[in-house]
């Protein structure tokens, strides 16, 4: 079971004089849920953006399984099997819920523009399959009743779930979720926790999270990494992290120990 999924080594991202991510190493195994925590500005989202190809890291290597994906463009990284969500929800706002999930399946599609123009049998069949799969995925996240609504008409919590559904639609090996519970009330947070566990258990998706809600993180993660000023200051199981003095200091400030 301890098959290597994602390994990041010596990753550094420099913006002018700022080292947003500084020599980070970590390793995730297939089928696990890993969380990255840390104060605001610690470099968590920058790390995500490096992995998903938005930034080309200044130094370091990223591997997905055996494949080196460092510096590949985002679309190829998506095709390699990494899907993600965003801290500030980024749906295709003017399209329907169903269309958003259809688009999520891009890496599985074979239809080309010629097929679209001539309406070939293969293109039509693929469209039908995509629509059917999309409905199934929407049912999985309990959004199928809203399939024909425009994405930006959905309530906030549903938009978050739709973003997860879109990511799930690509049948990814790794799903990266940037603050999946941000702005949620305790009940929605509990629902999200259940959904993420089902993603792993029923859909075999490995999860990499950025999250601020400590109870949520401690409850769901098998492994936690703590970033501060771009550096890894701790890494381990939830119990280890909870007991780590450096983490407590980073979160509560040094004065809290007095």
């Amino acid at each position: 079971m301890s098959e290597s999924l994602l390994s990041v080594s010596g990753l550094t991202m420099q913006f002018g004089g700022l080292r947003a991510v500084d020599n980070v190493d970590f390793h995730q195994e297939t089928g696990t849920i890993v969380s990255i925590i840390g104060p605001n500005g610690a470099g968590k989202t920058t790390l995500f953006n490096c992995i998903s190809g938005f930034y080309e890291p200044t130094e370091g290597e990223i591997h997905l399984g055996e494949r080196r994906i460092t510096g590949l463009p985002p679309n190829e990284i998506a095709r390699a099997g990494i899907a993600r969500t965003y801290q500030n929800i980024r749906l295709f706002r003017n399209m329907t819920v169903l269309e958003n999930v259809m688009l999520g399946q891009e890496r599985l599609l074979r239809t080309t523009w010629l097929g679209s123009i001539f309406g070939t049998r293969a293109a039509r069949r693929e469209t039908d399959e995509v629509v059917e799969r999309s409905h199934a995925i929407l049912a999985f996240v309990d959004l199928d009743a809203s399939a024909d609504r425009q994405a930006d008409e959905l309530p906030y919590g549903d938009q978050r779930r739709l973003e997860i559904a879109r990511a799930l639609a690509s049948e990814p090996r790794l799903m990266m979720l940037d603050e999946p519970t941000a702005g949620m009330n305790p009940r929605e947070t509990a629902d999200t926790e259940r959904l993420l566990q089902r993603l792993r258990d029923e859909r075999n998706v490995s999860l990499l999270l950025i999250e601020h809600d400590m109870r949520f993180v401690m409850g769901i993660s098998e492994h936690i990494m703590v970033l501060n000023y771009g550096r890894t200051i701790a890494s381990g199981t939830p119990q280890e992290i909870r007991a780590n003095p450096e983490v407590i200091e980073a979160y509560l400030g040094s004065s809290a120990q007095d």
Partner: peptide, 24 residues
């Protein structure tokens, strides 16, 4: 068509369209 969907995805959010695997 699915090609039309790709165009509309680029219209709505090019960065995300790229990140879901579309060769923008």
């Amino acid at each position: 068509s699915l090609t039309g969907r790709r165009w509309m995805a680029i219209r709505d959010d090019e960065t995300v369209a790229n990140a879901i695997g579309i060769d923008t």
